[in-house]
Every structure is written in C-alpha cells, then in structure tokens.
Design a protein around this nucleic acid. Structure first.
Length: 376
DNA sequence: TGTCCACTGGAAGGGAGGGCTT
DNA sequence: AAGCCCTCCCTTCCAGTGGACA
C-alpha cells in the first residue's frame, strides 16, 4: 500500500541514527492505520536487530489518556530494570519527565513513539504532553525522538497550540476508507484461507463488502461480519453461508455493540438511561433535561443510590449522546427556555432488560413510575 | 422590540483514593 | 506519620443564550 511505503521511507532514516519527521496519520476506523504502523514498527526493529539504533514505543491513548500516564508508560517501556520502574501514581509529572529524559539520553537511540487515538489524549488532557514530548528533542543531547500520532478525527488539531500542531504535523497522511471493491478483495483473500470451496454462497462476499462499505469502509468490521455469518450458519447446522445469514449477523453485531455499551455504563448513567426509557414509556418521546432529571431523582431514591446534581446529569447525558445510546440536541423553546431535547436511540425493551439485570439497579425491577395525579 | 425561561457548559475547587517520600 | 502528587468524580457558581411571546 502506498501509505505504508511513505511511512516506511520516513521511518527508515532512523536506521542510520537520524531523527525521522514527526508524522500525523488520519483515517477512519478500520482503514488499517494502526495495523500498518505496528507492522512497520516490527519490521524496523527486525532490520535494526544488529545495530540497535531504534526503540519503537506504541501506546493507545484511549487507555493511557493523561499527561502523567503517557510519560509513565513511555518510561516503563524503556526501563527494563524492575526496581527503577515508574509507579502509576505518586510522583510529580515533572519528576517523571526528568527521569524519562535522562533514561532516553543514556540509551543513545532514536525513539519512535506512537500515540494511537491521539485525539482522545488531546481532548482529555490538552496539549501539554504533546508540547513537552515534541520539545524533548531540543533537550536531548544524544538520543532523538519522533512522534507518530494516529487519529480518526481530522479536525482535532485545529484546537491545538499552533506550535504543537506544526511540530507534530511535519508529515501528514490520510488513510482513505476502503471502498466496496477493495473490501471484496480483502474478504475473498481471507475466505480462501478460512473456508472450504463452496462453503459460501456466491453473493455473500459482495454483500458483506457492500454493507461494510456503507459503514465507513471498515475492514475489521467486514471481516467480523463474514466470520459471524459463518458462525450463525454453523450453529443452524446449515452447510452453506447465505445472504440471510449475513443479514442476521449484521443485526447481531449491531445489537451486541449496543448491549455492550449499555452494560458497561456506570451505575449513575444507567439510572439516567432508565429514566429516559421511563419517560418514553409515558409517551414522552422527546424529553428535556428537566424531565429526565426529575424522573432520575425518583429512580435514584428508589434504588438507594446517591442523587447527583443536575449539572452532573447534563454531562452524563452528553456522554451517552456521544456513545450513540441516546440522541440529544440543544433546542430553544422560546419562553419555555433553552434545553436539550433528548430521545432514546436504542431498542427500548432490550435495553431495559439489560438495565434491570444490573445488580445495583435490582430495586427498580418492578418499579412503577409514580403517577402524576393523586386524588385526595 | 425586549423579556424571560430553563437550561447549557465553562471554571474552579473539594475530597476520596491511589501511591511515593522523608 | 505527615506531607506530597495525580486522577476521578462531583459540586457550586454563574455568565450566556435562542426564540416564543407580550
């Protein structure tokens, strides 16, 4: 692939002990950014085996998303000696930074640090780390450092400190999404290894490819789709995978993703979601933050969980909006005020089931919404 | 045209929980 | 043991606001 070639030629300079440019790599999920970079990292280290000029360090910023975390993580990938490891908390960031610098300089190598999902790090912790990291080069005397940032968000650099942005983006690259045709090739290749000839109905691969192409050309998803279609066929005892299996698989994947997202929500968010469902049950399909909050308060009370402030609930609502579990947009109702209009965007019954399975929400199992009107 | 509602979302900060250092 | 550090989850406070209505 063209992009891999490009990155490879940039990184190759490291083999001679020179510093490769920093690179920013953009592209939607499943376009092979991470896989490509990891692959190149392996290759680089293989070629470098005798020279030992290069250290390749990878981390995913969805997991490591704080300033301290990033520095600590890099440090611990460099420091092999167990006693000298950097603790995950307790030290000042400054101290970690200094130790990191000394260690790196001692090694006298070219460090290539890959920050996958770098946008997550930036949105969470700002550009301080990136600033320090990209500036480190000036302070290193023997070693060199270059940073590869991977992001599926093209725009996030706009909000960065211009200095950081220009340093980080010495080279920029975009991985285009796969189109249906490319996906078909990828799937066909894989199918040849994984399936007996004739095990797939002819239209299965084109269908998987087309469905995945619609969904941003994610190759990983396309492969999952094929695999799960086959699993479903096998479980049914069918000897060929058909289009019907693929469609079932698609549904299953979508539902599984939702279930997983809901299941792993923190308790408080689950309560908020529960109250959104209850509002919907009452025939209130589009509700405001106020509606959700007053229902939430009752639920939290019934569940015996502490009641958070409305400000906090606003944030939880926004988080679930980003996860795609609900849909919320700010809307003005004139004199009625300006607030969010919230709508459930996952299947109601299944979601409710999952919520009721939660240990902490047990008391709500047969909870009946309090009736509005009380006759005296 | 101005008012006013029901919030929004930023800023600051507290305190608990992890852990190091002296 | 006392004094730090860093992160996470929250609270408190508050200026700002889109648009229906008077």
């Amino acid at each position: 692939m063209e992009e891999i070639q490009q990155i490879a030629s940039i990184l190759a300079t490291a083999l001679h002990g020179n510093r490769p440019s920093n690179i920013m790599i953009f592209g939607k999920t499943g376009t092979g950014k991470t896989a490509s970079v990891k692959f190149l990292g392996k290759e680089l280290q293989r070629v470098d085996q005798n020279l030992q000029n290069v250290r390749f360090i990878y981390m995913n910023c969805e997991v490591v998303d704080t300033q301290y975390g990033v520095l600590q993580n890099i440090g611990n990938q460099i420091i092999i000696n167990f006693e000298q490891r950097i603790p995950f908390t307790g030290w000042s960031t400054e101290r970690v930074y200094n130790i990191l610098m000394n260690k790196m300089d001692e090694e006298d190598k070219v460090f290539i640090i890959v920050l996958d999902e770098i946008d997550k790090l930036f949105y969470k912790s700002g550009d301080d780390v990136l600033y320090h990291l990209t500036k480190m080069n000036d302070d290193l005397r023997r070693s060199k450092l270059s940073v590869i940032g991977i992001s599926n968000d093209l725009k996030f650099t706009e909000f960065m400190d211009p200095r950081v942005r220009s340093r980080l983006g010495e080279e920029k690259m975009v991985f285009p999404p796969y189109n249906a045709e490319q996906l078909r090739d990828i799937l066909a290749q894989r199918a040849e290894l994984a399936f007996e000839p004739g095990a797939l109905e002819e239209s299965v691969i084109p269908l998987c490819a087309a469905l995945s192409a619609q969904e941003m050309g994610d190759a990983r998803r396309a492969l999952d789709l094929l695999r799960i279609s086959a699993e479903i066929a096998e479980r049914n005892g069918d000897d060929r995978v058909t289009e019907a299996h693929v469609l079932k698989a698609k549904n299953k994947i979508e539902l599984d993703a939702i279930s997983e997202a809901v299941r792993t929500l923190p308790t408080q968010s689950k309560l908020v979601l529960f109250s959104i469902i209850n509002n919907d049950d009452k025939g209130n399909r589009y509700m405001t933050t106020g509606d959700v909050y007053s229902e939430y308060k009752q639920l939290a009370e019934a569940a015996g969980v502490s009641i958070l402030t409305q400000r906090r609930i606003t944030d939880l609502i926004s988080e679930m909006d980003m996860l795609g579990i609900i849909h919320a947009r700010v809307k003005s109702f004139g004199r009625g005020g300006r607030t969010k209009e919230i709508e459930l965007s996952v299947p109601k019954m299944e979601t409710k089931q999952i919520l009721e399975d939660d240990e902490e929400l047990r008391p709500l199992k047969n909870y009946r919404p309090a009736t509005q009107t009380t006759l005296i």
